[in-house]
Amino acid sequence: MPISGIPSRADLVDHLVRTRIAGEVATPRDNNLSHYRKLANGDRHYWLGLELGDRWTDEQDVLAVMAERCGVVDDPEHRSGQDTIDVELTVDGLDRMAARLRKAAEGRQRVLIATGHPGALLDVHGETGRALRRAGCEVVRIPEGLTTDEGCVVQFGGVAVFERGATLWHTHAPEPMTAILDGLEREGRPLPDLVVADHGWAGCAGQRGIDSVGYADCNDPALFIGEAEGTMQVTVPLDDHVIDPFFYEPMTAYLLGAAGLT
């Protein structure tokens, strides 16, 4: 049944598990382990804009962080089949993100909103941006004409996204965020006080020293490592592309309610 209004924690937990945003998620275990291995082997595509150096060269260390901060199965011998996201960690992450959003609203800070998952998380980010704007925050308008080698960086409803061939693209790349931050500096405009994002957009901002909060799936370990190291402020674990984007609406309502932004 749909949830109206702001759900309680218990109702949200039930909803997230039922819709597989958390709990037994669709991302298979072998895919998770493959990404952990590639990160440990230095494949920068999986670093999501962070600079991890030689600190995470052991796949088992990556798995340990993911078990602690995301709730994947901690048994290294579990190599295939189902994997999990601990729903309590998801809601704990939303509470931490809400605290940072509340701080932004109280200080009327400059906030940049961006997503590499326009097919699923665009409305989550859009609603967050609109709530912050109503609270008196400046939702940063990105410079015009930004491009990367792959396409253009544009903004819809206050959310920065990656466009290619008149289509919004799913991307893990940090280059779009690099283009935005470099563009702001070229124009002599201040950088944001806070970035709310995901994927390489969030990682790049955190690496540049900006307070960055974001969402990450269980096959994207870099942002969890970033939070463990203090580069990321908050990383919320969830399946970032469930079949129906409307399933995220109760989560967004809970987040904004906890932040005092409803």
Rank of each mutant, 00 (worst) to 15 (best):
A10P: 01
E187W: 08
E185Y: 04
L112H: 02
R164H: 14
H15Y: 01
Q155E: 11
R9S: 01
I225Y: 02
D86Y: 00
R108S: 11
G42T: 12
V17Y: 05
E144Y: 07
L181M: 14
G136N: 04
C152A: 15
D54G: 02
R96T: 04
E229Q: 13
Y215D: 05
A135Q: 06
D239A: 12
H199I: 12
D75Y: 10
D92N: 06
F224L: 08
M232C: 11
D11I: 05
D14C: 06
H199N: 13
R134H: 14
Q82L: 07
V17W: 03
M1N: 10
M251L: 15
E227A: 14
L63S: 04
V72Q: 06
Q109I: 04
I142S: 07
R9L: 05
I113Q: 12
V195E: 05
W201G: 02
F224V: 00
E68Y: 00
H117P: 11
C204Q: 15
G53W: 04
L238F: 01
R18W: 02
Y36K: 03
R9P: 03
G107Y: 05
E59C: 01
L181I: 03
H15W: 03
S212G: 13
G214E: 14
L50D: 03
M251S: 11
C137E: 01
H172Q: 12
I243W: 09
V17R: 15
L39G: 04
G119R: 08
R189A: 15
Y254S: 05
H172S: 02
L191G: 11
D244I: 03
W201V: 01
A135W: 06
L121E: 13
N219Q: 05
C137A: 05
R9Q: 03
R102E: 14
L52G: 02
L33S: 00
D198V: 10
E24R: 14
D240G: 11
G42S: 07
G136T: 07
R141K: 14
E106K: 14
M232N: 00
D123P: 08
A131R: 08
M177F: 00
G5A: 13
V87W: 02
N31G: 11
T147K: 10
P176Q: 02
R141W: 10
G129Y: 05
V111F: 04
M251D: 00
G203H: 04
V153N: 00
D43H: 13
D92E: 15
G145K: 10
W47N: 13
E24W: 09
L256F: 01
R208P: 04
T90G: 11
A105M: 11
R141D: 15
V242P: 15
A222K: 08
E106T: 13
G145D: 14
L12Q: 10
E185N: 00
G200R: 05
E150Q: 14
D211Y: 01
R96Y: 06
Q233K: 10
R18Q: 13
D58E: 15
A67C: 09
A40H: 09
F224Q: 09
G257S: 14
T252G: 12
H172W: 00
T19Y: 06
T171L: 02
R108P: 09
L146E: 14
L194F: 08
L122A: 13
K38E: 13
A179K: 08
E138H: 10
I3S: 00
R18P: 06
V195H: 02
T262N: 12
R186A: 11
T178L: 03
P143K: 08
K103T: 03
